[in-house]
Design a protein around this nucleic acid. Structure first.
Lengths: 218, 218
DNA sequence: GTGCATAGATGCATGATGTGCACGAATGAG
DNA sequence: CTCATTCGTGCACATCATGCATCTATGCAC
């Protein structure tokens, strides 16, 4: 490898060649899984194919992921982690939901700037029922982390249950918003990012304003 | 069978012996899976054991569930469905969140009155990481149904995204509340149902009042 | 009741998944 | 260079999951 080979996406724990190789292998597997799943459908791809595509032994696959689904979802899961990490970095002047909103926008921008196709993962997942559980599990894992971050942000001595409730509701809101956006994509190509931004604004606004509604009088 | 043999929990589609046998078999498998999972741990139970316990052929298992996890989670999934169905039955005089709250209380009461151990499922699931995805998937499935029910309740022409957002946030809130309650159970026995009721009240109240909070000034 | 059409249960064969174990090669530390 | 550790790999094995063919029970029409 020459000097400035390729990019340095993801969290390349730059310490030592070993670590670098590991993250590279992990990325290779993830991308291979995604590529094949996109081409043939998740169900019709075998681990053997993925291993071959990533140029590793079948047995090695399990050193990185415990199932095919986990590998395919890994990309999206990484974005979730980035989102939560981004939330932590928001200035304390922003309220909780404001910070969540801004963090979401930052992740969106990063995803667009990145070469990897972040949309592909979501599109595949939406189309394949078997991936939903894994995606939700990845989301739930971040929910715990996010709850801690929220607890740190609002400080102690507050409403005991607020952090987890807020984390769960916020992630649910983001999930629904993203889902509706992808749905509206459906036929056409990428439907304006601005539409997504607007939806985000409205959704989180609704969370802030309160979710109750009267029933239809009739 | 004599006159009043046993109970009639679940949704015994009472039409014909065939349907009755099917639901009975399904329940037998579900209960067998739960019993064995509770005794030995989900991972250490094989489908063969479950099939033997439920007195069916291994192959037959797959006529009812597509995986061991699905069978174990089936009980909880049924409660979710009951909850959403109960929501539909709430009078139109109640606001959306009010109706959700009442429906939750009704399901709780039913679960307590029932002979089947509804808590067991949740306890097992909490303890076994591999079940989380399946549970979340079951919840997500009901999220769609709930969103439709909410849409019907508030009537058309409203905020386009409200039903799904509300459904997702409400189910997330219920999940978190239940989880916190089970967590607090931990050591001791069943920690007062009234505690759970109170938590529910506060959680849904928070959803109604709005979730934003200022960050810690410091 | 008789006979038919269909749904469900079962067995068999087979591919795919996932894990424990052991060995060898690459890596990093001294 | 030497050693300890980590990681990749092959092998064996149990389990999971599905498609196909077959057999049986059920429901229905008459």
């Amino acid at each position: 490898m020459a000097v400035g080979t390729q990019v340095a996406v993801e969290s390349d724990a730059g310490t030592g060649r070993r670590e670098r190789k590991k993250t590279a292998t992990r990325a290779a597997i993830r991308d291979a899984a995604m590529r094949l799943a996109l081409r043939d459908g998740v169900e019709r791809v075998t681990l053997e194919q993925i291993a071959a595509e990533a140029d590793i032994a079948l047995r090695t696959f399990f050193n990185y992921f415990s199932s095919k689904e986990e590998a395919v979802v890994a990309g999206a899961a990484g974005d979730f982690r980035a989102f939560v990490a981004g939330f932590r970095d928001r200035p304390g002047s922003e309220s909780v939901l404001r910070a969540l909103h801004e963090a979401a926008l930052v992740v969106l921008d990063q995803a667009m700037a990145d070469d990897r196709d972040h949309l592909a993962a979501l599109v595949v997942i939406r189309g394949e029922r078997s991936l939903v559980p894994q995606l939700l599990a990845a989301l739930a894992a971040q929910e715990t982390v996010l709850a801690e971050a929220i607890a740190d942000r609002v400080g102690p001595g507050q409403d005991e249950g607020y952090p987890r409730l807020c984390a769960a509701a916020a992630l649910a809101a983001l999930r629904v918003t993203l889902d509706r956006w992808l749905e509206s994509a459906g036929a056409g190509a990428v439907p304006s990012l601005d539409g997504l931004r607007g939806e985000l604004e409205r959704t989180l606004g609704a969370l802030a304003a309160g979710l109750d509604r009267p029933s239809r009088p009739e």
